[in-house]
Structure formats: structure tokens, C-alpha cells
Amino acid sequence: MTIPEGILCSKTHEWVAEINNEFTIGLTDWAVEQLGDVVFIELPEIGSTFSKNETFATIESVKAASEIYMPVGGEIIEINEELINSPELINEDAFSAWLVKIKPENFQEDSQGLMEYEDYKDEVQ
């Protein structure tokens, strides 16, 4: 598991990282560990837009369904299609199994309050 550089995490356990000029969103390793076996991931449609903290996806473990919130607002420009048929990939590596790529609306403002990974780890543990 490699943690993407410059990653920012939300209190609701999403991460966002700028990788090769693309803004990628996923769920943290800690959150995935808490969920256990992931059996289903519902991703949004490409082209849809969500504001910060809005529900954009759902992740289901054997036991329960959990909502996933936008760490920053924006338009969905790509989804990780692989997760639709192989949701268990997120259990193997929460950082390579990203959920969506977005075009942020106002990254500077929305990213206020997000934590660096080390600070996030301290907060959840």
C-alpha cells in the first residue's frame, strides 16, 4: 500500500489527492478496515456534480451500507469501473482502489479543514 503524496483526509474518512493534475477521491484505509469485507460499491454518474459533504457514493459491507461524502465539491469526470465488478479490491488497497476523479469547483476553499494523512491517523486512533 502506497499512500499518495500530498493526500488530504476528511473527518468522514474520504481522501483527496492531486495526482498528475487530476483530483482523485477515495476512502481511507482506516475506514475500509472498519467496514470489513466490501461487497458492493455504488458510484455516481460521470458528469454529475456534488458539493462538499454531499453523498456521492455508497459502500456496502456484508453487514451494512455506508454513505461516502465529497471531501471537496466538483464534477465527476471519471469513475473507477473496476470497483463495480470487484469491490473487494478496496479491501486490498484503499489507496490504489480510488473511487472517482473530479474537476473541483473551489479546491482552495473546500480543502480548508481537511487533514494531512498523519494528522488524520492521529485523530482516528
Binding site: G36, D37, V39, S61, V62, K63
Partner: peptide
């Protein structure tokens, strides 16, 4: 305990 190594296993 809700699970040890994983519910499916």
C-alpha cells in the same frame, strides 16, 4: 465480537 478475520471467511 462481530468478526475476527472477516465475515465472509
Amino acid at each position: 465480537p462481530v468478526q475476527y478475520e472477516g465475515i465472509i471467511k
